[in-house]
């Protein structure tokens, strides 16, 4: 695919003898939503960890936005425009909801230590801007995050924790957003609200791409343009949802297990 903003080629990762990802190819075009599904242990989260540089791949290349980012440090990759959420939400739980998003703006602020010490007005202005921007972001995501912005993140309910993680990831204005099981622990209503949230975000910025790892079939059926299926670290399907769900190999590996 020539218009791919993101492409992984033959990405492989081994932990000791275990092959967690085996020559996986993935392409994402700008503006596309790609779902990655697969049974537990198929390597979905590992894929995200490789993309964001938390693990270095044992083989293969990862390209993003015209650059080879294989082996880059996580913070450089984020700076380049990839943000993510985590499967078990990893908020800065002893900080306020607002601070979580302000920290999400880290890549869009620039104060260094000398400026912070010698030009306090500049640093304060930047932080005021960040707080205002973060407040705007919180207003736009659903739930009552905005009302709870001065509470500790640890006090939030499960669905709000997910939303806050997404808000924090969006704060960096990524070109590619990685969502790791965003509906885990959510009930149907929360899931619907989340699907709405994602649609709204997409409507704001049509060029922006999302890879979502998901178990919830409603979300997979309604949002993405394409579905990649992983099984035991291998890619076994890569097609629109309607095609994928009729694929016997996929049914055997995945759908057969979860939808009796």
């Amino acid at each position: 695919m020539s218009d791919a903003i993101f492409s992984a080629r033959e990405v492989t990762i081994r932990f000791g003898g275990l092959v967690a990802l085996d020559r996986v190819d993935i392409d994402v075009a700008a503006g596309e939503i790609l779902a990655v599904i697969g049974p537990n242990g198929a390597g979905k989260s590992t894929l995200f960890n490789v993309i964001t540089g938390i693990y270095a791949p044992s083989g293969g290349r990862v390209r993003f936005d015209g650059e080879d980012i294989t082996g880059w440090q996580t913070h450089d990759i984020v700076m380049r425009g990839i943000s993510r959420t985590f499967q078990a939400s990893r908020l800065f739980s002893d900080l306020s909801v607002l601070d979580n998003v302000v920290i999400g703006l880290h890549t869009r602020t620039t104060t260094n230590v000398f400026e912070a010490l010698c030009l306090p007005s500049r640093s304060r202005r930047e932080l005021t801007w960040a707080a205002a921007t973060a407040t705007e972001i919180l207003k736009r995501v659903g739930g009552d995050l905005y009302d709870r912005r001065y509470r500790r993140a640890s006090e939030l309910a499960q669905a709000d924790r997910r939303r806050l993680e997404i808000a924090r990831a969006l704060a960096a204005k990524p070109k590619l957003l990685l969502l790791d099981e965003p509906t885990a622990g959510m009930d149907d209503r929360d899931t619907d609200a989340l699907i709405e949230d994602i649609r709204r975000i997409k409507a704001d910025r049509p060029e922006f791409a999302i890879i979502v790892v998901e178990h919830d079939m409603r979300l997979v059926a309604s949002l993405p343009s394409r579905v990649v299926v992983l099984d035991y670290g291998r890619k076994i399907a890569d097609a629109p949802f309607d095609v994928v769900r009729r694929d016997p190999r996929v049914q055997e590996a995945y759908l057969g297990q979860t939808e009796p």
Partner: peptide
């Protein structure tokens, strides 16, 4: 503060 709370998350916000 971010890296006090969660180092991996801190890396992941850049």
């Amino acid at each position: 503060n971010a890296l006090r709370a969660d180092e991996v998350a801190a890396r992941s916000v850049g």
